[in-house]
Design a protein around this nucleic acid. Sequence first.
DNA 1: AATAATAGAGAGCGTCCACTCTCTAAATGG
DNA 2: CCATTTAGAGAGTGGACGCTCTCTATTATT
Lengths: 208, 208
Amino acid sequence: MVDRPAKVRRTQTQRREESIARLVQACIDCLVETGYHQTSTLAVARRAGLSQGALFRHFSSRLALLERTANELADRFIAHYRKHLDELASQDKGDITLAIRTLRDITRSPEQLAWFELQQAARTDAELCDVFQPVFLRNQQDNVNLAAELFPETLGDLPMMSELLQTLIQIFHGQTLDAHIEQNEEKDEQMLALTIRLAQLGLSVFKA
Amino acid sequence: MVDRPAKVRRTQTQRREESIARLVQACIDCLVETGYHQTSTLAVARRAGLSQGALFRHFSSRLALLERTANELADRFIAHYRKHLDELASQDKGDITLAIRTLRDITRSPEQLAWFELQQAARTDAELCDVFQPVFLRNQQDNVNLAAELFPETLGDLPMMSELLQTLIQIFHGQTLDAHIEQNEEKDEQMLALTIRLAQLGLSVFKA
DNA sequence: AATAATAGAGAGCGTCCACTCTCTAAATGG
DNA sequence: CCATTTAGAGAGTGGACGCTCTCTATTATT
C-alpha cells in the first residue's frame, strides 16, 4: 500500500501563492531549457504539476505570466549578488578580481539564461517589450546601486561606473552565448582572464 | 490598359537561383522584423512573393532554409567589413578609432540582428545548433583573418588578438540589444565612446 | 450545516504551424 | 513538336498553440 501523504489543509491564500510560485519557477525552467517560444502555457502548467486551466486562473494571459517571471528574475539577481558578493567585499576592498569572477559565474546562472530569452524576444514583440522594459531598467539601477554599496571604496564615486559595469555585464553575456556554441572550456577561461585584465585596466585609468 | 511586363524567358537555373535568393532575403527580413519563431515558412514565402509549396521545392525543411540563410549572413559580413574597412585601413594604419566605430555600425546592421536570432535560438534547439555551429566558427575565423589582413601593423602579431576582437564584438552585441530596450541615444553614444577608450587601452597594453 | 467564493481539472475552439500532395506552367532535350 | 523534367500554386493534414468554458474540489462565511 502506498503511503499517501495526508492532504494538508491550507488557506486559499497559501494555495494561491504556492501555485503561483510553482508556475513562475516552472516558467523560468522552461525558458532556460527549451527557450522562449517553447515556453507554452501548457508546458509551464505541466511542469508545475497543474493544469492549463489552473494557470489561466492565476494569470490572465501568457504575457502576464512572463511579466511576473521577469520581475521574479530581477529580484533573484539582487539576492544572488548580495549573497555571493558581500563577504568578498568585506575582505578585498581593493582588489575586485574575485568579485569580477563571481559576477561572471552569476552571469552563467540559469536565471540569466531565462533573462536573455525574454530580452531577445522583447526585441520583436511590442507587447512583451512594453512589459519588460521597466523591469529591465529597474534591474540596471539595482546593479549599479548594489555595486556602489558593496564596493564603496573601489566603485563609490568612479566616473562612468554605471557604464563600465554595464559593459562588463555585456561582455559576460556575450561570453555566455558564445560559450554555448564554441564548447571550448579552455578558451572560455582565457576570455575570462582577458576580461579581468581589461576591467582592472579600465578601473585604474578611470580612477585617476 | 496596364503595361504588363513582357514575361522574360529565363533558364531553369536562373529561375531556381533567383527564387532561392528571394527566399533567403525574405528569411533575413523576417528574422530581423519579426524574430525567429515568427519566421514561418509561409511568412517567408509570402514575403518572397512565392507560395509555400515553392519554398519546399527549394528547401527540404525550414531548418535547411535557416542553414542557407546563416551561410548567406556569414558571407555578407565579410563583404561588409571589406567594403567599409579597407579604405579606412589604407589611411589610418595606426589609429583604429574609426575602424572600431565602423565595426559598431556594422554590428547594428539588419544582418547582425538576424544572426542574433539564430544564435539565441540555437541555444535551445539541438538541430539548429548542429547546423549553425560550423557557420558560427567559420565567421569567427573570417573576422580574425580579415582584421589581421586589413590592419597588419596594428593587429598583425598582437597576442590575444582573436580574443580581444571577439570581446569587442561581444560588447557591441550587448550594446545593440540593450539599446533596443533603453532607447536612449545619448547613452548609446557614451557607451560607444567608453568602448573605444577601453579598446585603445587594451591595444596599447597588449602591444608592449 | 448551508451557502458562497475560490482553486483546479480537462475538454473544446479557432488559428497557425511545418510539411505533403496534387495539379498546372514553364523550360529542356530529342 | 513532343516527351520529360523542373518550377510553382494552392488545398489538405495532423499537431501545437493561446485561451475559454464547464464542471468538480476545496476553503471561507454565516
